[in-house]
Computed example of a mutant assay.
Amino acid sequence: MQIPSNNQSIPLVIFDMDETLIAKDLSVLWHDYLVKELKLADSSFVEEDKRHMEQYYLGAMDLDAYISFSLTPLRQYTIEQIDAFAEQFVADEAAQYIYPDAIRRIQEINQTGSVCMIISATMTLLVRAMAKHLGIDFAEGVNLEIADNHYTGKISGVPSYQNGKVIRLRQWLESQQGRYEATHFYSDSINDLPLLLEVPNPVVINGCEKLVAEAEKRNWVQEQWVL
């Protein structure tokens, strides 16, 4: 099942975020920020985050449990308050970990008339904050259920994780009625293999061991980006 192509469409270049555009996992940085800067959780929260991330790198994360855990310190805040926290967090903390090569590549893509998008398994509120900082117009992440202008801690719709990224991209492309054509996808993670297999031009950035093996087998482009 291939991503649809339309010769009249604008080329769309898609990036994973964590450890692709930035040298860290944004959710991990965010959780540290909640503890150290906003003082909304204690050190046990960071330790629990590490246990979840160990499962992610094995491709076995329980995403529902992780999202519920991640939002625990924020349940009393409104969406607008959390969005403000997130934008300040990206500016103050996360921006220093953006790869210079990522910034250059985004600028090059924009100059060609193509457009950029981020699709990440991180919460949409963080993905959009990073996309805004990078000047990327389109951002898709794990959407959250909302009630009374607060996040409930539950996922809404299909999570953009593993094959869910393919589903979410297809949904987005369909909503755009053929205006865009997915041409490239940049990623570091074996979790993104389903979407890498769908686009015409997969690009592996600082690939994990399993993804490097796949890239070598399939003769995919590989790049190493450094801070």
Rank of each mutant, 00 (worst) to 15 (best):
Q162S: 11
P202N: 01
N110Y: 11
Q111V: 10
A86P: 11
L227C: 00
Q76A: 04
F15P: 10
G178V: 01
Y33P: 02
V115P: 13
K36Q: 10
P100E: 04
N143S: 14
R179M: 15
G164N: 07
M117N: 08
L63I: 15
I103P: 00
A41T: 01
P159H: 13
N163P: 06
Y97T: 08
V203Y: 01
L125T: 15
Q111R: 11
R179D: 13
W220Y: 12
Q176L: 13
T152E: 00
F89N: 05
F15K: 15
L26Y: 09
G113F: 07
E48I: 10
P11G: 12
L125A: 09
V127H: 04
V203N: 03
D25L: 09
E181H: 06
N201D: 01
Y56S: 05
D25W: 11
A215E: 02
S27W: 02
L21S: 13
Y180V: 01
C116M: 12
I155G: 07
S44V: 09
I167H: 07
Y66R: 01
R218L: 03
E214H: 05
A91H: 14
D18C: 15
D32E: 15
P11I: 14
C116G: 05
I67G: 00
E54H: 06
E145A: 05
L40A: 08
V226M: 10
G207V: 02
A147G: 03
Y56D: 05
N110E: 09
F15A: 12
I119F: 06
E87K: 15
D101Y: 05
C116D: 02
L125W: 14
F15D: 13
M53K: 06
M123L: 08
Y161R: 06
C116H: 11
M53Y: 13
C208H: 08
D16K: 15
Q8H: 15
D16G: 12
A139T: 12
M117T: 09
G59K: 05
M61A: 08
Q176D: 01
Q107I: 06
S9R: 10
R105V: 13
A121S: 12
Y33H: 08
K165C: 12
S70E: 07
Q96R: 07
I22G: 12
L58T: 00
E174P: 00
W225Q: 04
L195K: 11
L58Y: 00
L58H: 07
Q96G: 03
W172T: 04
A94Y: 02
V199E: 10
S114D: 04
K154W: 03
D192E: 09
V221K: 11
Y56V: 03
I190D: 08
D49V: 03
I14T: 11
Y77A: 01
E108L: 05
S114W: 04
A102L: 04
V158K: 11
L126S: 05
A182Y: 03
D101P: 00
